[in-house]
Design a protein around this nucleic acid. Structure first.
Lengths: 155, 155
DNA sequence: TAGTCAAAAGTCAAAGATGGTCAGAGGGTG
DNA sequence: CACCCTCTGACCATCTTTGACTTTTGACTA
């Protein structure tokens, strides 16, 4: 694998998958030691790979007996998924390509979009397609994503 | 061989052929070193020799663990349909909802989009979704439709 | 009970590692 | 000579890695 962050990401996802439970608890220090990196690297991995829009929930506690708990959120109701994604849109004034991609993939994982549809929509919403309108890009993405979700919420 | 670009092109195609996989991943820096040229020469080669029309798809990532991935794709057999639709886009400075609908339906009839995909795209490209930007609406529609056709031009 | 301390985890900004862009110089060919 | 490729390098954008400094928490102590 190319970089340590990807390796740690894979490792954590593997652990998550193997433990049947919906959540795993890790010690930041331990993971850092295992992969010979600084502890804050673990925060980086979590902040970039285990985000809310990707369907992960992370809690932690400091001090003695501290831990980081990573939970995979599985929402069974379409309306719940859409509602939570719309909240995320609310929370982000700027909608980067990265965030859009995460959201679309999430919709795929929740069974609401096909792989092809994700690819299709991603291209339409890409920086390249939207062009130079850097300022309006975010606005347009928001509106189109909202339109998409509205459409998906029927049926 | 005349110039370094041709040499690099041949080399990359060779590697692509030898690796049974449909894609190869390279490090720009490495290739540049191997052929003793500046890194941006690699971009030149890729931009001129590995285009979509020639049947290649290129993705990349910057930063630590960055890479350039070159993928061989099969071009869609209906290039003529796409070309004629692109001509239509050229001819219309303003892209009304109606025109968008016609184009999408045409793509459906040609078997390049499913009914659901048409519905989805139509909603995203509607006046309502694009919002108040009446001026830019046409521009954005054009760009997004072009992005769509570019995507549809290969499998 | 309040205060202190050590053991976690969190934050943030700088440095490092790649790839991308673009405009202008260089060169070959009709 | 004109034109079209090629080549180059300065500058930019993005992602990752690191480490110094901060905050939180529980246990222990006065």
């Amino acid at each position: 694998m190319r970089n340590i962050s990807d390796v740690i990401e894979q490792y954590l996802k593997q652990v998550l998958k193997e433990s049947q439970a919906e959540a795993i608890e890790i010690k930041r220090q331990d993971i850092a030691k295992r992969f010979e990196c600084v502890p804050s690297q673990i925060n980086y991995v979590i902040n970039t790979r285990f985000t809310v829009e990707k369907g992960y929930l992370v809690e932690s506690k400091r001090g003695g007996g501290g831990y980081i708990r990573i939970r995979r959120v599985i929402l069974h109701e379409k309306q719940d998924v859409l509602a939570s994604l719309m909240d995320i849109l609310q929370d982000h004034p700027r909608l980067s390509e990265q965030l859009v991609e995460n959201i679309l993939i999430r919709l795929f994982e929740e069974g609401m979009l096909s792989e092809r549809e994700v690819r299709l929509l991603y291209h339409l919403l890409s920086d390249e397609a939207l062009g130079l309108h850097a300022d309006d890009r975010h606005l347009i993405r928001r509106q189109q994503l909202l339109a998409l979700m509205k459409l998906l919420s029927y049926h």
